[in-house]
Simulated scan of single mutants.
Amino acid sequence: MNRVIPIGFIICLFLSACSADKRSPLNTSFYNGQGDKIGTATLKEMSDGVQVKVKVEGLEPGPHAIHVHEFPKCKAPDFKSAGNHFNPMSKLHGLMNAEGAHAGDLPNIEADSAGMVNAELMLPDATLKDGQKSLLRKEGTSLVIHSGVDDGMTQPAGDSGERFACAKITLDADKNETSDPTEPMEKQKKSSK
């Protein structure tokens, strides 16, 4: 009997680890309002939250707001289908707000003079595991890039302008995806062979 409990416990740990492996890292793609793929995001479970690596092109040079939104729906051209910010703890918006922030609030990203972004961000109040703060709870969530900058305070979304691009955060977001448009063409040709 004593041997059965440890073996059962080990099996549970193994199954939990397998489940976590399917959730992290999680890859997804950004699409603009015209339906063009303009980049990718990779989300990875870390000890201090969820790491978000963003690689995008085609933005206006300068800072842009990026947030996690509550639904995995990216209906172009305005992406309003993504809903409000992911906010499971019912806080106010803004990384600079003493009463905030939403779990989906992220620092602004900066597009270079060519309109490209290569950034690594952190969501300290989120997880890819099960739970209230899971980005994968229910159907999932989405990442939305805005045309303007998030001022870190204004309710409900930091006065960040129109929604410019959207990426679904779901377990199967990376299925049937094309190559990364921010990679050089030679690299894309090799990966398609």
Rank of each mutant, 00 (worst) to 15 (best):
P6C: 11
P6H: 10
G8R: 11
F9T: 14
F9L: 15
F9E: 15
C12V: 15
L15C: 07
L15D: 06
L15T: 14
S16D: 09
C18Y: 09
S19T: 10
S19I: 14
S19M: 12
D21G: 07
D21V: 13
S24N: 05
L26N: 03
L26P: 00
L26E: 04
N27H: 11
N27I: 14
T28Y: 06
T28M: 06
F30M: 03
G33N: 06
G33Q: 09
D36E: 15
G39V: 00
A41L: 06
E45V: 01
M46V: 13
M46A: 10
M46G: 05
V52P: 01
K53L: 11
V54A: 00
V54R: 04
V56F: 08
V56T: 09
L59Y: 01
E60S: 12
P61Q: 05
H64L: 10
A65D: 04
H67S: 09
V68K: 00
V68W: 01
H69F: 13
K73E: 13
A76I: 10
P77S: 08
P77N: 12
D78W: 14
F79A: 01
K80C: 07
A82Y: 02
G83E: 05
N84W: 13
N84L: 14
H85E: 15
N87A: 07
P88F: 12
M89W: 12
S90A: 15
K91H: 08
K91A: 09
H93A: 06
L95Y: 08
M96W: 12
M96C: 03
N97C: 07
A98K: 12
A98V: 11
E99C: 04
G104S: 06
L106G: 06
L106T: 07
P107R: 14
N108S: 01
E110L: 12
E110T: 08
E110Q: 13
A111R: 03
A111D: 01
D112P: 03
A114S: 14
A114G: 08
G115F: 04
V117T: 01
N118Q: 13
A119P: 05
L121W: 03
P124H: 00
D125C: 00
A126C: 03
L128G: 02
S134N: 09
L135K: 02
L135W: 03
L136F: 10
R137E: 10
K138R: 13
E139K: 10
S142P: 13
S147P: 05
D150L: 03
Q155K: 03
P156E: 11
A157T: 11
A157C: 09
G158S: 02
G158R: 05
E162A: 12
T170S: 09
T170E: 06
L171A: 08
D172Y: 01
D174Q: 07
D174Y: 12
E177N: 14
S179I: 00
S179P: 00
Q188N: 03
K189Q: 02
S192N: 12
K193R: 08
